[in-house]
Design a protein around this nucleic acid. Structure first.
Lengths: 243, 243
DNA sequence: ACTTTTTTATTTGTCTGACATTTAAAAGTC
DNA sequence: GACTTTTAAATGTCAGACAAATAAAAAAGT
């Protein structure tokens, strides 16, 4: 069923890969129970701790879940959207923070992706999405709002925009990109961002969405992107001068 | 430094979360060495196997790498683009295959994302990208080509289009989406897809890209998307009739 | 006969201790 | 000084044990 070439290193990684392949290939279906740890140990000719390490690897990717007790065991997990979001966010966040991705590169990518939703969102937006966006705009225009709260509201606004496209796959992809950008965005927000300008642009986007004018949404998003990038440039130049 | 509330279950998961947080927070930087497994065991007041399970969880997410021998240990890993790709692909593939995502939903998402690259790609495409695309088009028009090879070439073509935008973050996001769609796409291709039509549209895209006409690229992509979705509809209807 | 309680078996979670293997650095040798 | 050998530290793996949770079976009580 699943074998294991005695080639090179790390038995637990090999076992994890074998089980992962079986799941991806469809040999193991959702909610199916894997053999018990002891049985797997016998099957693969390794000890139980080694099997356990392999299972933990899979659990870390939400591929399996485990239950204790009689008739417990490891079960193939249905990968839910929230789980997938979470992993995408950690992966994307780390990728951006560890690879010295330039702010404008990330920003360009983010708004390009978001603009991909503009047309669909204009077609399909429901009153709920509009209400959410209006509410966030209102919150953003409150004078006493902290920087953190403003950023959170900003994310919620754009999240609503993406969700308005009513395509869960798009939402899933975009959630990772937007969330991962947040730390980078905060650097800008906390220094130079004009809330007034942002609120104006957000309002324009909401208006265009309400009018189901996809082209106008797209234009406003592009303007927002350009503004954000120009801000970033200014912040970077400022830093260069300071050092 | 990192503690561990004796609240609820699964020590290895808690420890993994603590270390993951430390990495994401920046308390542990790239290439920094974690304490040895024995030291971590002492620190968290657990046994070494438990620590090891936690470390394997992190290794599964490419957050750490391990080296044997003296001055070995677990090191914070720089998450590389290829590693991130790989994870994105497994996650996306499983998400799509396990959640009964409708083909047209996935297809819509894929082409929406790809169209997000159209403008940038038209601006920045290099002769290399064009050459790759032309070569793939040529391969696709060979009569003896197997279905598998045609699909692979299709992926390579679209990959080149995305890469032409010269934004690694976009490439990273799109690679996952496109690859994850492949199994679904194959269902269509192996039944009803007209290669001639595809090649014609691909050629039009390449021509528009050569002319740096972003708008035209976008239109051709939309046409390709519509064609693919209509094909899918036909295949589904055909199946419904058969059953 | 039906419900409640108790027992039991199974399975994961965790610990202890040991040995194997790899690898870099220290010690020794020419 | 360059080379070889030894050593120590670390991960990788194993074996066996006990704890804890849990569902099913068995027993008890009404």
């Amino acid at each position: 069923m699943k074998i294991d070439p005695a080639s090179k290193s790390d038995l637990s990684a090999q076992i994890a890969a074998a089980i992962r392949d079986a799941i991806m290939q469809g040999d193991l279906i959702v909610d199916e129970r894997l053999p018990s740890e002891s049985e797997l140990a016998d099957q693969f000719r390794v000890s139980r701790p080694t099997v356990r390490e392999a299972l933990k690897r899979l659990a870390a990717q939400s591929l399996i879940r485990t239950q204790r007790g009689a008739s417990g065991g490891a079960f193939v997990n249905r990968l839910s959207y929230p789980d997938a979001y979470a992993q995408q966010i950690t992966t994307s966040t780390l990728l951006l923070s560890m690879n010295a991705v330039r702010f404008d590169t990330a920003c360009e990518a983010r708004y390009a992706l978001e603009r991909a939703c503009a047309g669909l969102a204009a077609e399909r937006r429901s009153p709920d999405h509009l209400a959410t966006m209006r509410a966030e705009i209102h919150r953003q225009s409150q004078p006493g709002l902290s920087d953190e709260a403003f950023c959170a509201s900003d994310v919620a606004f754009h999240r609503a925009l993406v969700d308005a496209a009513k395509n869960p796959v798009l939402s899933y992809q975009l959630a990772g990109a937007v969330e991962a950008m947040q730390p980078l965005m905060n650097i800008i927000t906390f220094t130079a961002r004009s809330r007034e300008r942002i609120v104006t642009l957000h309002t324009r986007i909401a208006d265009a969405l309400e009018a189901r004018d996809g082209r106008s949404v797209d234009l406003s998003l592009r303007e927002l992107a350009d503004y954000t990038v120009s801000l970033a440039d200014r912040v970077m130049q400022h830093r260069k001068q300071a050092s």
